[in-house]
Computed example of a mutant assay.
Amino acid sequence: MIQTRTTPAAKLWRTISIVALTLVLAGCGTAESGSGPGSDQVSTEEFLSEHGLDRMAVTDRPNDLMASVYPDELVLAGEAQEVTIDLPEEKAYVSIAPYVDTTHDCFYYSLTTCRGELGNEELDVKITDSATGELVVDDRVTAFDNGFAGFWVPSDIEGTIDITHEGKSGSVDFSTGEDGATCITGLRLA
C-alpha cells in the first residue's frame, strides 16, 4: 500500500518531479512539434508558474530540500537522494533578483534558498542578445515571493539584462554559455 505524505517537503518534491518531467519532455520537441519560441517552451513556463515551483511562498519552502539550476541541468537533493535532470539543449533558465539596497553573491540559482529584496514587486524586464541585437525578453512581470524573476532564454548567448522598477533602472551583462550564471543578483536599480 502506498502512503501519501503531506509535509511541505513532500509537496515540493511532487511538484519538482512533475516540473522535471515537463522540462525533460519540453527538451525532446522538434520544430514540427512546435518547440519554437512561443509554443512548448511557453507551456513549460506556464506550467512552472501554475504549479508554483518558483512562486511558492518563502515561508512554505522546506529546509531539507535543495533544488538548484545549473546551465544544463536541474539538481534536486534531499536528505539521502540526489536527482539530476537535463534541461532543454537550446534554452537556458536565468533567474534575476534586482536590488535597490541589499543583495547577495549567487552563481547557480537555488529554488529553495535564494532570496532577493523585491519580492512580489512589478518589474519591466528587457533581455537582449548582444551578438544579434535581438530582444529575447520584453515583459512586465511580478517577481516571485523570493524576490527573483525567472526566464527561459536561448542558450549560448551573451547579452544585457535591463530592469526598471518604480522609476529606478539598472543593467547587467550575462551569459548563458556552459560557464554562465543562472542566478543574477548584481543588477542594482538606481
Rank of each mutant, 00 (worst) to 15 (best):
residue 149 A to D: 02
residue 95 S to G: 13
residue 97 A to M: 07
residue 115 R to M: 09
residue 182 T to E: 06
residue 41 Q to G: 03
residue 135 L to K: 13
residue 98 P to I: 03
residue 177 G to V: 04
residue 128 T to H: 03
residue 164 T to C: 02
residue 118 L to E: 05
residue 116 G to H: 04
residue 99 Y to R: 03
residue 57 A to N: 08
residue 70 Y to A: 10
residue 94 V to R: 05
residue 145 D to Y: 03
residue 166 E to V: 13
residue 151 F to S: 02
residue 67 A to Y: 06
residue 155 S to K: 11
residue 87 L to G: 12
residue 29 G to P: 04
residue 81 Q to V: 06
residue 135 L to G: 13
residue 10 A to P: 15
residue 130 S to N: 11
residue 129 D to R: 00
residue 146 N to R: 01
residue 157 I to D: 07
residue 81 Q to R: 08
residue 153 V to A: 12
residue 62 P to G: 15
residue 100 V to P: 02
residue 22 T to K: 03
residue 10 A to Y: 14
residue 8 P to L: 12
residue 123 L to Q: 14
residue 3 Q to T: 08
residue 53 L to D: 03
residue 72 D to Q: 15
residue 69 V to E: 07
residue 43 S to L: 02
residue 180 G to L: 06
residue 67 A to K: 11
residue 173 D to R: 03
residue 38 G to V: 01
residue 130 S to K: 10
residue 82 E to L: 01
residue 119 G to A: 06
residue 74 L to D: 06
residue 133 G to P: 07
residue 110 S to I: 12
residue 117 E to V: 00
residue 103 T to K: 11
residue 89 E to W: 03
residue 6 T to Y: 15
residue 115 R to V: 11
residue 40 D to K: 07
residue 83 V to A: 10
residue 22 T to F: 09
residue 12 L to F: 09
residue 118 L to I: 07
residue 172 V to Q: 11
residue 122 E to I: 12
residue 145 D to R: 00
residue 86 D to F: 04
residue 132 T to A: 09
residue 106 C to I: 07
residue 9 A to M: 14
residue 111 L to Q: 01
residue 13 W to N: 13
residue 55 R to I: 00
residue 39 S to L: 08
residue 140 R to G: 15
residue 130 S to W: 02
residue 108 Y to F: 15
residue 10 A to W: 12
residue 170 G to V: 00
residue 108 Y to A: 04
residue 180 G to F: 11
residue 14 R to I: 12
residue 136 V to L: 04
residue 70 Y to V: 12
residue 94 V to M: 02
residue 121 E to A: 10
residue 82 E to M: 09
residue 42 V to D: 07
residue 167 G to C: 09
residue 123 L to D: 11
residue 60 D to C: 09
residue 181 A to G: 14
residue 113 T to W: 09
residue 124 D to Y: 15
residue 165 H to N: 15
residue 126 K to M: 04
residue 32 E to P: 01
residue 186 G to M: 03
residue 93 Y to V: 06
residue 166 E to A: 14
residue 97 A to Y: 03
residue 10 A to M: 13
residue 43 S to K: 07
residue 178 E to W: 13
residue 172 V to W: 10
residue 96 I to V: 10
residue 15 T to L: 09
residue 147 G to S: 05
residue 119 G to D: 08
